[in-house]
């Protein structure tokens, strides 16, 4: 039995400690915004925040996750999140949309670390997230948009 903190709530989970957090979120807690895309930390569709750091939940065991504060796409919030979501919708970034939970989690973490990222910063932070629809041009533009919004709000 493990106690985990997800989105500011604690849950008792009676699963094997090696169970990837991805499947605990999806199958036990029924939080399905975090997606399975590869299972080997290649695609980033399962990105969550662990104490505000982006991590791949497919390779994060339940027993490790229980020591941290987990945030998923369902409950991630803050000015960066609002700016990113607004930019995503304004640019119609998603196509099939399946990877976008992970893209947004990575983009939010990027903007929290580097409020005005360069193209090269975006390459670094986002190249762990695959989009088979190749919405990369729009993701890049939307991140710049969101950075602009945040800058405007800060002034």
């Amino acid at each position: 039995m493990y106690t985990i903190s997800v989105n500011n709530q604690t849950y008792d989970v009676d699963e094997d400690g090696q169970t990837p957090l991805l499947w605990v979120l999806r199958d036990i807690l029924k939080m399905t915004g975090t997606k399975y895309g590869c299972g080997i930390a290649q695609c980033g569709a399962c990105t969550i925040h662990v104490d505000d750091q982006p991590m791949r939940s497919c390779t994060l065991p339940l027993e490790v996750a229980s020591s941290y504060r987990i945030t998923t796409i369902e409950a991630v919030e803050g000015t960066e999140v609002e700016a990113v979501r607004a930019a995503w919708v304004a640019r119609d970034v998603p196509q099939c949309g399946f990877c976008q939970s992970g893209q947004i989690m990575s983009a939010v973490a990027l903007l929290r670390t580097i409020p005005s990222p360069s193209d090269s910063d975006i390459d670094t932070a986002m190249s762990g997230n695959i989009c088979r629809c190749a919405t990369y041009n729009r993701i890049r533009a939307a991140i710049h948009d969101a950075a602009g919004t945040l800058k405007g709000a800060a002034e």
């Binding site: 750091q53 497919c58 390779t59 065991p61």
Partner: peptide, 13 residues
């Protein structure tokens, strides 16, 4: 972001 303190069997990471 991907590498934990131990080898993860489920993902092979």
């Amino acid at each position: 972001t991907c590498h934990q303190n131990e080898n993860i069997e489920a993902s092979g990471v």
